[in-house]
Amino acid sequence: MLTGTALFLSSILTLAAIYAVIALALNLEAGVDGLWDLGVVSFVAVGAYTYTMLTVSPASAGQSYIMGFGLPMWVGVLAAGIAGSIVAFLIGKPTLKLKNEYFLITTFAFAEVIRQILTNERWLSNGVAGVYNLAQPFKTYFTPSVYPYILLLLLVIIVFIVYVVVHRLTYSTFGRSLKALRENEPLALTAGIRPDRFHIRAFVIAGFFAGTAGAFYVWYSTVITPSLFTSDITFFVWMAIVIGGLANNKGAIVGSVIFVLAGESLRFLDLGSGFAVRMASMKIAILGLILIAILKWRPQGILPEKKVKFSNSSKNS
């Protein structure tokens, strides 16, 4: 019983870690920069598919997908990130000059179009059937019973690395320029910060990390189908960063953990068989209520954005 609970807990914490990577990426573009991106799932989807297509062996009979080069995993992860960046660049270039509302709608639309293509173009990625039995990293070195903990450990390390990178970006000149644009664009312009350049950079960097998160998601699920990449992911990650605290990187991680725990802990409720299918609905209703409650009573989230104070160094010297 105890090992069952521990396994379950490690599984949902792994999921939380994957959400945290996407949340950190989204936090950079949406929290630090002020982009209203409702299409972050498109980077995750493209990353996940790029990773899969590059690392699996060629399609067997009855399947059809492109590539299947059987490349090493680290190449796949890197390629997933790059693919995410490329998609971000292609989407961002024409849409970033639009107003917030239009940007939101277009990114939402792009994500949906990408999912439809993945669903319907069977030659590309085996359509709705997807690809199964995908390999997990370092699996051969461990016994199957401890492997879930190893995967969790690996993802915790990855979250830590992404956190350090995003954190440094946030407090660099680049991050401060993004915040300046978010707070007061005309003023930032007079300081020589070009909105188009900075927005696209933030968007492309977010695309990179969200793309790699796609690869990690494949590690976790070991299958890939288009139905994994609905706009629910976008909304869930947004909820996670709103709960944790927009523009706070620790908040993005905390929010992801709380969000996933809150959603999955409902499974412990035993409401009898037959209710299981309705559980998914009840789960999203409760998550929705949590989001509404947070926005109403603690709109800055659990960990609000820290105001950075700059000491006036010229005065001190």
Binding site: W36, L104, F235, W238, M239, V242, V277, R278, A280, S281, M282, K283, I284, A285, I286, L287, G288, L289, I290, L291, I292, L295, K296, P299
Partner: peptide, 23 residues
């Protein structure tokens, strides 16, 4: 804040209807 409240509400409505009527 209004936008994300409406996202929350959308999930609440969808979830409640789903809980009552099933899939």
């Amino acid at each position: 804040v209004l936008l994300f409240t409406s996202v929350g509400l959308a999930y609440v409505i969808n979830g409640v209807v789903g809980t009552i009527f099933g899939t």
